[in-house]
């Protein structure tokens, strides 16, 4: 049974594209046939983050406007057997695709893939509506900032209105030391407001910046804490139970961080 999952946030810059690239890669590493779709038409990034920019011939708009077969637009990842990308068009805008067309494409892809991840654009306008049109499930990404949480809340409301229930939450770029000092919103504060299930916490990690710029998702780096967090989320997406660790344990920073993302 294949799943179409939209990765969304409302606010820009919280890590939707990075999360999509890493989760897609992690799922393909687990042997799942995975395709990631960049729905951010006009501002495409997913191909860059995945290091596939130079292989693009056709894009999402070419598919819906029937200038190519959908298989022609699928870019196969150079490193991972089971991973494909459908890039967004860079020269068009969000109105080039309709929700109906997106739904049709997602349904077509279901036959070939276990997981279809859609990288949603920021905002709540047409781009968002297109991205969620074909989705069964949603993952909402937020950072521990009031503005990002506010936007996530709005997005959850809109998802519910579109009959996408029980979205899962990724808290991205958490700085454990800042939370401990009380300078950053903690996980409980965020969950108290958003009241949805947490599927993962990704610690702030310099490796993400490095890997994003190189076009190599962090999940491939075994030393990256964020990469480990994404690998765990990918397992949770597949239904595996990986426990969350109580942050209030009285212990050192490093071991807490490791527990948080599941290294212990």
């Amino acid at each position: 049974m294949s799943k179409v999952i939209v990765i969304t946030s409302g606010k820009g810059g919280v890590g939707k594209t990075t999360s999509t690239a890493n989760l897609g890669t992690a799922l393909s590493l687990e042997g799942k046939r995975t395709i990631v779709i960049d729905a951010d038409i006009g501002l495409r990034n997913l191909d860059v983050v995945m290091g596939l920019e130079n292989r693009i011939v056709y894009d999402l708009v070419d598919i819906v406007e029937e200038r190519c077969k959908y298989k022609q637009a699928m870019v196969k990842d150079k490193r991972f057997e089971n991973l494909y990308l459908i890039p967004a068009a860079q020269t068009r805008d969000k109105d080039s695709v309709s929700p109906k067309q997106m739904k049709k494409l997602c349904d077509t892809l279901r036959e070939e893939f276990d997981f279809i991840l859609i990288d949603c654009p920021a905002g709540i306008e047409n781009g968002f509506k297109n991205a969620i049109a074909g989705a069964d499930e949603a993952i909402v990404v937020t950072t521990p900032e009031v503005s990002a949480v506010r936007d996530a809340d709005r997005i959850i409301g809109l998802l519910e209105a579109s009959e996408i229930h029980n979205p899962k939450l990724i808290i991205n770029r958490l700085k454990i030391d800042m939370v401990q000092r009380g300078d950053m919103m903690n996980i409980d504060d965020i969950l108290d407001i958003l009241a949805i299930d947490l599927i993962g916490v990704v610690p702030d990690d310099e490796n993400i910046v490095i890997s994003t710029n190189r076009g190599e998702p962090a999940v491939t780096n075994q030393k990256s804490l964020a990469g480990q967090a994404y690998r765990n989320i990918a397992k949770r997406i597949q239904g595996e139970e990986i426990p969350f660790i109580d942050l209030n344990l009285n212990e050192g920073f490093v071991s807490k961080l490791k527990k948080l993302i599941g290294l212990k």
């Binding site: 709540i124 506010r150 936007d151 809340d153 709005r154 959850i156 409301g157 519910e160 407001i193 009241a195």
Partner: peptide, 21 residues
């Protein structure tokens, strides 16, 4: 949730939270 707007001629009782926004 944020962005929701409820207007009613009468009383409103919410069995849940009302979030910022």
């Amino acid at each position: 949730r944020s962005g929701a707007f409820v207007e009613y001629e009468g009383n409103i009782v919410v069995l849940g939270d009302v979030n910022p926004g």
